[in-house]
Design a protein around this nucleic acid. Structure first.
Length: 245
DNA sequence: CGCCAGGTGGGAT
DNA sequence: ATCCCACATGGC
């Protein structure tokens, strides 16, 4: 199922291209928001790796639109490098990323991340950190660590996020109790371990989750065969609108 | 107004 | 090991 799903989604939504790099918006191969559909081999400079990691923290349980505002605030304040971030007071940093939500927590996590990316600088720039190393950082959990490994360092680890769980549960591949590592094993066992594939596949899952497989699903015209239809409640619960007098 | 968004850490069980 | 909850803003 996991192997069959990918071409289905690719045909339905087309190449996505991740991670968006706002700093590359408009450059050759990148669109106006920094996506680079169909290509995963662009050069990742140390600055780009760091930008990806910052975005991965800011998007924790947060829509990308809110993250873009925070990234724009950082950029227009001239705060880009780990040293720049560490030069801010926690309060100022929290203010800059306020739009991404949880800004106090995230400001602290960004400082921890900056220390990590700063030293030892030359090593950190090019060689992938160990997963456990990232997980030891306060504020970096499994999804954020794996996002950094995949999108910043090109490691073939599959991202397991809320969208992935929701989709797999609806099509009956998982029950819902499985750990992140168990779900990753499903992908790793079913697919060639190529970071380009893992990248695009996860991007497609996000596209599908946003377009159709939402919390309140839009099943009409869904590109995924009806195997999940009988698992969905006919009318997902919703409160009737209340008058606002 | 209520729901949702590319989670995480810490405390209780 | 697992469950539960606080953490926060913005879009629709």
């Amino acid at each position: 199922m996991i192997a069959r799903l990918y071409p289905l989604l690719l045909r339905a939504y087309g190449p996505q291209g991740w991670w968006p790099l706002a700093s590359m918006a408009g450059h050759r191969g990148f669109d106006s928001r920094g996506y680079h559909p169909g290509s995963f081999s662009f050069p990742r400079t140390p600055a780009q790796r760091f930008e990806i990691a910052v975005g991965a923290v800011l998007t924790q349980n947060t829509s990308w639109g809110n993250v873009e505002k925070a990234l724009a605030a950082l950029a227009s304040a001239g705060v880009r490098t780990p040293a720049d971030l560490l030069g801010c007071t926690g309060e100022r940093l929290a203010g800059l990323v306020r739009s991404s939500g949880y800004h106090n927590q995230k400001a602290r996590t960004l400082r921890v991340l900056s220390v990590f990316f700063q030293a030892p600088a030359s090593l950190r720039a090019a060689s992938p950190p160990a997963r456990d190393e990232l997980l030891s950082l306060r504020g970096i959990g499994e999804e954020t660590a794996d996002s950094i490994l995949l999108y910043a360092f090109g490691r073939p680890v599959f991202i397991v996020d809320a969208y992935t769980r929701r989709l797999l549960q609806r099509i009956g591949v998982i029950g819902g109790r499985e750990s992140c590592r168990e779900i990753q094993a499903l992908f790793s066992d079913a697919l060639p371990r190529a970071h380009e594939l893992f990248n695009e596949y996860h991007a497609l899952i996000v596209a599908h989750a946003k377009a159709r497989c939402r919390a309140r699903p839009v099943c009409e015209g869904c590109p995924v065969p009806r195997c999940c239809a009988r698992r969905l409640p006919r009318h997902p619960p919703r409160h009737p609108p209340r008058s606002r007098t």
